[in-house]
Amino acid sequence: MTLIPVPGRLVALIFFLLLVAKNNNCYSQTIVKQENQNEKNFLVRTKQFNEFVDRFNYKVNFHGDSADSEFKSKIPRDKLINSLFDLKDPRVDPNNERYSKKYVDEKTEFISEMILKNLSINKHSGKIIAEARSRVLLKGTPHVISIFLSQEVSGNNTVKWVINDVKGDLFNFFKSDTSLVRFIPPSSNETDFLNLKRALDDTDHLQYYSSKDYCPDYLSVFYYMINSKLIQFEYTEEIIYHIIDIPGWFIKVKEFNRNEMNSGWLITDIGKNTFDKFNYLKNN
């Protein structure tokens, strides 16, 4: 394996570097090397979700290099995991009215279990669910929906993200009404289901004409709406990772965009979990 730039590009690059060298005296801009407070903050900040997983697994130091014994002796794993929590969470501040002893105890139990059992997160686990809170336009009006994605690893170790599910008020188009009993009568079959017309005209309450096992598949509804141009995808506003890869627990991770060391991708919530992926998505 080699990596050689094509000759034309090489010539252009040399020419550019010569120009840079020639005009070096009038440089008012640089790639900064000295450290300032901003730089220190960004160094400690968990810059990517990938970095979050590496730090959680005690694999890298703050420079992204392998965590060696010197680093490990300075920063024990429990301290590193604790630094990956949002430390501004009101639930961990005893002076805040939203302080929760239950959450603090659960957090302590979680960290202890990670250390005791030496648990880690599998970076390409299918049990890492990315919730992409996204802006879509429905007939020109903006709506926020959640698109849930997870990673799929194929036999030859290639990885891709796939869409698992979608949620949003947009899809709750059925209305509840218990004042009337809605059904297709038992003798309808003998009249070639003439009642179907009546049932399907009741557009807000179609769910009552379905089986008791009926469960709407919003992803197919979403694909249909996109395909028929009923809605247009605009952009992703925010990502929240739901990690259910660690047995017995769920972890929620999101990006905290603030200029301090405890920033970037941090744990925003943890809790006990007994659901598999399908049921976790259904219940969250």
Binding site: I31, E35, G64, H124, K160
Partner: peptide, 22 residues
Amino acid sequence: TKVIIKFYDIAYISEFTKGPDG
């Protein structure tokens, strides 16, 4: 009239992962 662009000496590069397109 004047612009100063500085880059901090921090570049985090995640591990390379192979996609289905090779």
